[in-house]
Each structure stands twice: as structure tokens, then as C-alpha cells.
């Protein structure tokens, strides 16, 4: 396969996300802009300009109308997807680490870092009530005193948010009351990324403890574990195959002291049921910070510490490949 290389960022990629149909790919990085690309040919549709700090997270609602970004400039911003205009800006007291639309696109959540004497908070806003945006007053705020949230996604039916914490815990925070519905601790270190399967029944975590785990989103039952020898920065579940892709590599601070050959900067493909690695794709010359599957499962993208995003369209061999049990 010939990957399409997207060079829209000057610093390392922090998150990439497809919209629901997968025709658009959003990328954010430690520079201040958010980019949106046509995934089919890598053409850049536009940029969302306005942030003044590293952008940590991005999300797009189900009908691709609005885009949400959270940044280290202490703001979470809402954009019009088509024109790139800023619709709303929600100021916070510390950096915004994770953000997301619920499936209806009406409720947004974002979490802030434990920083500068401020606690980590998980905030919920209802976009149908303009007053909340205007007053910058969320309808629900959940403080997380113990360990900060490092990754979060909406669970099924918009009932709760599944959040991964710095200490390896996973919590379900109700979107109605804010209480913790379920709590598990399967990881020993920070959870870098959580992504859902296409039908939202499962979530996959990527942790600094060199493993990635599959959970049931409602019960948080631990289903599968995928082990590697490097910290995992991101993991995604294929929408059409029983496959899981993981991106990682050693920590960014150690990159300069290791060569790409032993740096293990490949994207690694595991069989979801057998927990066995079956393929690797090279390309990045830094650790992979984020991976995402196209919703049709025929391509995947990865964003790296090297600042590049690569869109890979799978060769026919990938679809023919069968792992022997």
C-alpha cells in the first residue's frame, strides 16, 4: 500500500478522528490548529484556527455539523465543521485533555487537567440550552480528586462517559447524575487512549503499562488483553474484521537516543479473539500517538510524534489473510 502522507502540523499529532461516514479525517496536534482532510485522497478541506496552545483532543458529531476541540490554552471550542467558524468557546481553569459529543450530538463532555492548583473536572454541557454556553456554566461538573482523566469516550446511548485515569482505573461517569456507575482497575499505569467499537458495545484501552485491553462498555467486563513490550499510545478496533490495531513506541523523551530500527514505531495488528499479533506496518519515524480505523474498515490512519498523519488503504492481502489458530 502507498500511504497518503498528511503534513498539516508542525508538531506531534495528539489525536486523529474520522467522522461517522469516514469521508473526513480530523487531526489535532501540539501546534495550535486543527486540520480536516478528505480521507479518500488526503486533500485538506480546511483548518480551524483560533487556539493558542497545544490541542489535545478533537471530536465530531454524528451528522458532521459541529467539531469540538480541547486545548492546553484552557479552552474547549465548538466549530462549524463546514466553514471553520468558531461557534462557542468554553473557558476552563486548566488544560482540556479529552472531549466528545454524545451520539445525539446535543450533549458534550470534556475533562480538564489537574494543573496549576486546579483539580481535574469532567464537565457536561447541553448544547440545546444556549444559556449554559453563554454563562460557561455546565449542567453537570464532576470533580475527580484521586487521579486525573487522561482519556474518555461516550458510552452507548449517551448514558455515561467511560474515562481512563492516570492510575490505570476505568470509570463510568453517569451523564445525568455524575456518579460513578462502574469502576475497574485492570491497568497498572496511565491509560493513554480509549476507543469504542463501531457499535459502541466494546471499548479498547491503550495503556502505558505496555498492554491494551478490550472491555464490555456497559459492564466493564475485561474481555481480552493484547501485550506488547512498549507503552501503547493508542488502539482501535476494526469495524469489519476481528482485528485490533495498536500504535506506540517508547516515550517521546527517549526517541532521540534510539534508532528507528529498534524503536518499534510500527503499527501493530492483533487478532481480537486470539490476542495474537499477525502484522506490522512501518512508516513513522517516531512513536505513533494515535490510530483510527476508517468506519468502513478498508483503511486506517495513524498520527505520530513525527508530526505526520498517514492514511493507509489496505492491500487485498490484508483481507485474505487468515490467522491459523
Amino acid at each position: 500500500m502507498k500511504p497518503i502522507l498528511l503534513q498539516g502540523h508542525e508538531r506531534s499529532i495528539t489525536q486523529i478522528k474520522y467522522n461517522r461516514e469516514g469521508d473526513l479525517l480530523f487531526t489535532v496536534a501540539k501546534d495550535t490548529v486543527a486540520n480536516v482532510w478528505y480521507s479518500v485522497n488526503g486533500e485538506r478541506l480546511g483548518t480551524y484556527n483560533g487556539h493558542t496552545g497545544a490541542v489535545w483532543c478533537v471530536d465530531c458529531d454524528w451528522d458532521t455539523k459541529n467539531v469540538l476541540t480541547g486545548s492546553a490554552d484552557n479552552s474547549c471550542r465548538l466549530w462549524d465543521c463546514e466553514t471553520g467558524k468558531q461557534l462557542a468557546m468554553l473557558n476552563t481553569s486548566s488544560a482540556v485533555r479529552t472531549c466528545g459529543f454524545d451520539f445525539s450530538g446535543n450533549i458534550i463532555m470534556f475533562s480538564t487537567d489537574k494543573q496549576m492548583g486546579y483539580q481535574c473536572y469532567l464537565n457536561y454541557f447541553d448544547l440545546r440550552d444556549p444559556q449554559q454556553i453563554e454563562d460557561n456554566q455546565p449542567y453537570l461538573t464532576v470533580p475527580c480528586a484521586e487521579s486525573k482523566i487522561t482519556s474518555a469516550v461516550w458510552g452507548p446511548l449517551g448514558e455515561f462517559v467511560i474515562a481512563g485515569h492516570e492510575n490505570g482505573e476505568i470509570n463510568q461517569f453517569s451523564a445525568k447524575s455524575g456518579e460513578i456507575l462502574k469502576k475497574v482497575k485492570e491497568h497498572s499505569k496511565q491509560i493513554n487512549d480509549i476507543q469504542t467499537s463501531v457499535d459502541l458495545t466494546m471499548v479498547i484501552t491503550a495503556s502505558k503499562d505496555c498492554s491494551s485491553k478490550l472491555f464490555d462498555s456497559t459492564t466493564l467486563d475485561h474481555i481480552k488483553t493484547f501485550k506488547t513490550e512498549r507503552p501503547v499510545n493508542s488502539a482501535a478496533i476494526s469495524p469489519i474484521m476481528d482485528h485490533v490495531v495498536m500504535g506506540g513506541g517508547q516515550e517521546a523523551m527517549e526517541v532521540t537516543t534510539t534508532s528507528t530500527r529498534i524503536g518499534k514505531f510500527e503499527a501493530r495488528f492483533f487478532h481480537a479473539a486470539y490476542e495474537e499479533e499477525f502484522g506490522r506496518v512501518k512508516g513513522h519515524f517516531g512513536p505513533i500517538n494515535c490510530v483510527a480505523f476508517h468506519p468502513d474498515g478498508k483503511s486506517y490512519s495513524s498520527g505520530g510524534e513525527d508530526g505526520y498523519t498517514r492514511i493507509h488503504y489496505f492491500d487485498p492481502q490484508y483481507f485474505d489473510f487468515e490467522l491459523e489458530a
Binding site: 500511504p3 502522507l5 502484522g279 506496518v281 512508516g283
Partner: peptide, 9 residues
Amino acid sequence: TTVSDDVFM
């Protein structure tokens, strides 16, 4: 946007 070298799984 550039097309990079062939990579294989």
C-alpha cells in the same frame, strides 16, 4: 499531501 513510499504489512 504527498503519497509516500510503498509500505507493506
